[in-house]
Design a protein around this nucleic acid. Structure first.
Length: 303
DNA sequence: GCCCAGGACTATG
DNA sequence: CATAGTCATGGG
């Protein structure tokens, strides 16, 4: 496939924003297979309205951020959908000032407003990808989770090459629902996770599970209830998806091992699995729990 | 060898 | 309702 530069435009940035900080979180030293982080850019393949593109988001010397869209020559450009994808990926339509006021006032976390200044919620705009990523990552260490994701993507996803670089699209529900269980076992997925992934893929393919249905109601409890009605989606996954994909700022993936580690490091809780103390820690961030979670996860990796 | 990983589900009291 | 057992494998 020959990809041409179809469009180039300036990205409208919110006030509290630092592209380098976002880039750093996007990379974090893990073996990410769905995008490539460079010194001042990030690139990935996306599918919007059935058309495939390569997106490159790049910061230039004047620290302006530009979006470059590559695609097949003379193909349609679904710019609204692409823009929406980018906005949701880096949470660009959010005013973070209320969150910064809260965190600035916190004795243990106030340093984050300068150390991590401008870090946005790094989202997973595609719901199917978000849910699958959660199931993959349940109860295993992150490094192994990235290994499993790469195996899944390289076996069932779609590769798009441009300028000698390969970009991968996450597998579609239509493909994954017919994946052979024995093959997935060879890729070292557990039987449980194989069953979850295939059932989730079926639910998407048959229209029972979709972003639109998640967003029928704005009510968090309803969204959680809907998501948790699918096998493989528990409280942790539902809340993770609500913050990373549905754009909610008020969710906590309760039970998350990373949150426990971060709160322990900050001496905010005395020991892991102290649910009372953990809830108390989030109490001061009502409405912005998702962002506190994001910043706590950020604190787990150091430069 | 042991315990923990960015959990969820089932069985049992 | 609360708790224990199960799943899988890599990493420290």
């Amino acid at each position: 496939m020959i990809m041409d530069l179809l469009l180039q435009k300036k990205v409208l940035l919110p006030t509290i924003f630092n592209f380098q900080e976002c880039l750093w979180f996007l990379d974090r030293g893990f073996d990410e297979c769905l995008y490539t982080v460079g010194r001042s850019s990030v690139s990935r393949a996306v599918e919007v309205n059935g058309c495939r593109y390569i997106l490159k988001i790049k910061q230039d010397k004047r620290s302006e951020v530009r979006l470059l869209v590559y695609g097949e020559a003379n193909s349609l450009i679904h710019i609204a959908g692409i823009q929406d994808y980018v906005d949701r990926w880096l949470d660009l339509r959010r005013d973070l000032s209320p969150f910064y006021q809260l965190i600035e006032a916190h004795p243990a976390f106030s340093y984050m407003t300068s150390s991590y200044y401008g870090l946005r919620m790094i989202g997973i705009p595609d719901l199917f990808e978000a849910i699958c990523w959660c199931i993959i990552g349940q109860q295993i260490n992150l490094k192994f989770a990235y290994t499993l994701k790469r195996r899944l993507v390289e076996r069932y996803g779609t590769c798009i090459g441009i300028d000698g670089n390969d970009y991968w699209l996450f597998p579609t529900p239509t493909v994954l629902r017919y994946a052979e269980k024995e093959t997935l076992r060879l890729l070292q997925f557990s039987k449980q996770k194989i069953a979850y992934l295939i059932q989730i893929a079926e639910s998407f393919a048959e229209g029972r599970l979709s972003l639109d249905q998640c967003l029928i109601s704005d009510d968090g409890d309803r969204q959680r209830g809907y998501l948790q009605s699918f096998r493989g989606i528990g409280p942790w996954t539902a809340n993770y998806v609500m913050m990373k994909c549905l754009g909610r700022t008020d969710c906590v993936p309760w039970g998350d091992a990373g949150i426990q580690s971060a709160l322990l490091h900050h001496k905010v809780i005395p020991h892991r699995r102290d649910n009372v103390e953990i809830r108390a820690a989030f109490d001061a961030f009502r409405g912005w729990e998702s962002y506190l979670t994001q910043y706590l996860w950020r604190s787990l990796s150091s430069r």
